[in-house]
Design a protein around this nucleic acid. Structure first.
Lengths: 219, 219
DNA sequence: TATAGAAAACAGAACGTTCTGTTTGTCAAT
DNA sequence: ATTGACAAACAGAACGTTCTGTTTTCTATA
């Protein structure tokens, strides 16, 4: 028997590699389909078409559609679990004005590169489906709650309230941002051109950014 | 020949009354189903069960499901077209503090009595479905854009920016509120108990309310 | 005013399509 | 040789739409 029996090993057998590739392809295709066609029109066969595999492969790795959605949700959440850590080095001796504009840029970046992506739109589709689906809710909600707490602690580590204040309030303010961005995904339904959305984002960023500052860590 | 040939008449024939009742029942049932079961699980037969009519009645009045959704959307939008007009009488000689708390109450009321209702949740389901459905989008979007502009003008009539400023900015701020509330519908997925949602709403309201004041009309 | 005939409202069955989940079969890796 | 990855065919349910038949309402004419 070979030593690679445990799950978390650097070396993967050819078979395991193949499995991982297939699963990756299927989950990635699921995200693209959710984004492009919506939850209702994302059938398993459509996913396999998009992924370039067979339905057999899908049902083998994900016996039910629910299993597929759960796994895909986890994959969407994983990479964004540590969201707002960046640019720590150049904020040491930056002026207050400069810091404010950095934070504004960061808030805008969250919209453009996190909230307004295929992954985020796919997650929204899942959230909506999940709202009225008890079984799915039971399986996914714990992950979402955990992710939310993780996100909050990450935020508290990197930011503090301007003029001081409880960390809970800071966490709440960032939650407001995420809630707002989620709502914004569907707001283009109400405006003619997307520039209006940008103006709304700017207004929102101008409102939030002055409330927070970077938290500098001691070495 | 009877004079009631024109459409907009106070008196309705028995037939028109019956038709109106049936359509009302179907659309109301559609809203309930969208809220309870979500767009994907709102089938025409389920709607007729909920409405207490037959499938024949539904297909007679709404040849396609799309027609039903379009009509239901219009019915959801209609009554909320004039949202924030109220309590104009007692704000005349109110103190600034009192006015602020009135506006905060109003913002909270919008969440509780407008944004967090079966109608609003049904609309969200439609907005999400519509995001990936070209045909539906073509038919509904003009209505939504019109509704948004109507809402904006209604807001500008009743509020002004604290310390003055363009009406466009005020309109944008209220749009932010609506976007936020829309995002909030799905946010209970991320929190354990709904009291956290209330705290977030309060935080948001405290943020927005100081930015606006009532606009007093001259007589 | 009474009534026949047209038109619309409504009911329910049937159709073809699509979906998910299951089963059977094949092939390569261990 | 045995197991797991994948492929494909299949079964049952559910969907939206179409179609046919029945009841109710309106209206023109006698």
């Amino acid at each position: 028997m070979i030593d690679r029996g445990n799950s978390k090993q650097a070396t993967l057998s050819r078979r395991e590699q193949q499995v991982r590739q297939t699963k990756d392809a299927i989950c990635a295709a699921t995200i693209r389909c959710l984004d492009k066609y919506g939850y209702a029109n994302t059938s398993t066969s459509r996913i396999t078409e998009e992924a370039g595999t067979s339905r057999g492969a899908l049902t083998h790795h994900f016996p039910t559609k629910e299993d597929l959605i759960v796994e895909t949700t986890n994959r969407i959440l994983r990479p964004t679990a540590s969201l707002p850590k960046r640019a720590d080095q150049d904020t040491g001796r930056a002026s207050k004005d400069h810091e404010l504009s950095l934070i504004k840029a960061e808030l805008r970046r969250v919209w453009e590169q996190v909230a307004n992506t295929a992954e985020a739109r796919a997650l929204l589709e899942i959230l909506i489906a999940f709202r009225t689906d008890k079984k799915l809710k039971q399986r996914i909600k714990p992950e979402l709650v955990r992710w939310n707490l993780l996100m909050q602690s990450s935020i508290v580590q990197n930011y503090k309230l301007t003029g001081g204040g409880e960390d809970e309030r800071l966490a709440r303010i960032w939650q407001i941002a995420r809630v707002f961005y989620r709502g914004l995904i569907t707001h283009d339904a109400f405006v003619e051109n997307s520039e209006e959305l940008d103006e709304i984002v700017n207004e929102f960023v101008d409102m939030l950014a002055p409330m927070m500052q970077y938290r500098h860590h001691k070495k």
